[in-house]
Design a binder for these strands. Sequence first.
DNA 1: TATATACATGAAATCGTTTTCATAACTGAT
DNA 2: ATCAGTTATGAAAACGATTTCATGTATATA
Lengths: 328, 328
Amino acid sequence: MATISDVAERAGLSRTTVSRVINQHPYVSEEKKKLVKQAMEELQYVPNSNAQKLRKQKTETIAVYVPRLTNPFFSQLVETMEEVAAEKEFQLLFCQTRYNKQQELSYLQLLRGKQIDGLILTSMENHWTEIEPYLTYGPIVLCNEYDYEAKVPMAHLDQVMGGYIGTQHLIDRGHQSIVYCSSEPGGSRVSKGRQEGYIKAMHQAGISIKPEWMYTDQFTIEGGKRLFYRLHNLKERPTAVFTGSDEVASGLIFEARKNGYRIPDDLAVIGFDDQPVAELMGLTTVKQPVHQLGRTAMELMVEQIQSSQKISSNRVELPFELIIRDST
Amino acid sequence: MATISDVAERAGLSRTTVSRVINQHPYVSEEKKKLVKQAMEELQYVPNSNAQKLRKQKTETIAVYVPRLTNPFFSQLVETMEEVAAEKEFQLLFCQTRYNKQQELSYLQLLRGKQIDGLILTSMENHWTEIEPYLTYGPIVLCNEYDYEAKVPMAHLDQVMGGYIGTQHLIDRGHQSIVYCSSEPGGSRVSKGRQEGYIKAMHQAGISIKPEWMYTDQFTIEGGKRLFYRLHNLKERPTAVFTGSDEVASGLIFEARKNGYRIPDDLAVIGFDDQPVAELMGLTTVKQPVHQLGRTAMELMVEQIQSSQKISSNRVELPFELIIRDST
DNA sequence: TATATACATGAAATCGTTTTCATAACTGAT
DNA sequence: ATCAGTTATGAAAACGATTTCATGTATATA
């Protein structure tokens, strides 16, 4: 494979000049520029990007961490991020943490090894204090996930508000016994915030929350089905359910209908995200502007990489939207 | 940031020895090994991976090209591939071609720039002859997409069989006027093969195909909705539809029900893939073993990278499964 | 005892670029 | 005529690792 030296030799010039042409430096005469371009063409020369990265100390690569891709929320996010990255001529390294602290930490080494210019976290398995030290090695941007202690750019939503809006809608519809089921396993901020919103709305309405109304760790269609049977078997059945994802809501409704429930009369269900399946299932849901979320996060990242000074904090908060369909 | 020289100095040894420890070469005494490890620890040393890649001429990175991630078929594929890659200690570079020839070709440059060790194509926008030359620069594996001219490893399904199975099922149910709607835009092999299977089944059953029974370029829920209205407006409406994806099938059923159609009595619909939504919609579908497809492709890739000799051809064909639910 | 072989280490070359530094020619202003 | 600044080019250093080659010592073999 041809190297820059081969090109230089063929053009009868120095490596430096060839490099200048590649990098569009000024101060190369048109004449030599032509010679170089011809030689590159003839040799089918493409610069070795590892050599470039080593020398330039830049990789033009951004890593994005998601828990699991088949969660449509995250695949939408990644799709958008790749688009924006491509626009800005960055590559995307894709990593799944699988809701696993160790996995997340091990992927963080990519930053230290200079393999990437920056890192976007869409979820955080570890506490921020575990992650913060890695800021020495490169910029980190939070997307969806947030942490008010963290002094880094972030694009996210006010999850407390999200939980509040959804719960309030159910209360407005006249419900009193409302189950809350979180989507994110573990104690993520996202999940905690949403739960806080639920509690706030319930308290404001003067409803006291029963312990058997709180569920966690369900975040799939299967989880929604399981949830149905748990509720079905309660002595006092709730009249409404707030779920942390359209998946869970869909599974729940599916299984409920199979068991003869009429939705929303026997059970009202509200989802979260407004994924494509929400429309198909006629799901009332709290819509997150996923597209905008991903775009903003990637733009914050690129901005930070390209500006020399460190942007310590730049928080973008996007709005929710309540989409009312037939499940409430 | 500490370099290998810093570590060597601190340990009172040469860079060579430090490198040997990093790479687990034999012929390093336990004593020195300890010294090196301690020095690495104290300096928080992590090797610069760009330097390693440059010198080793290996990147431990595999690129995977998909058209668009939000197609659940592809996000499942990528999810699995990342898992397998992580097992084998490879990184995943993620690229979307957006069903665009140019985009695909421009991403192919990654191979020439030595940025990746290999490339998995899950779809092919360009003809194989356009892609073949890049084999000089590194291995390419086909996944889902296939081409019998291509002498490269591939994991795929017999799409002719897929089209046949689905159509035959509709024929078995007594249908005669069956619409075919492909999912893949353009003239991909996958799409062509499936169509061939449809034609084969129809011919075998002695049914002649009407031109208004063939649709292409629909591959989303919205596309399914549009398809419904097209069919609805036909003078002679078909009694069954074979769709190339569960998305299209779902959109079609959704809109049909909205317009008072009973499924499957007024219109039978069969999907493709068996995505999660298929169960929710009660969709009969031709299941593709996506998980296995992704795993096999990634394994073929790693195998080829790690074995020194070129494996010119290693074709793995996986089986379909017909999942019968309520839509037929 | 001579000699091949395994073990252990380091100096220097190498991977393929970009960057720094040096040099020189040309331009325009004083 | 001199000086400063712009334009144009190349030699050599640098990026941070691994690999090759050379050398020395300990051990086993004939």
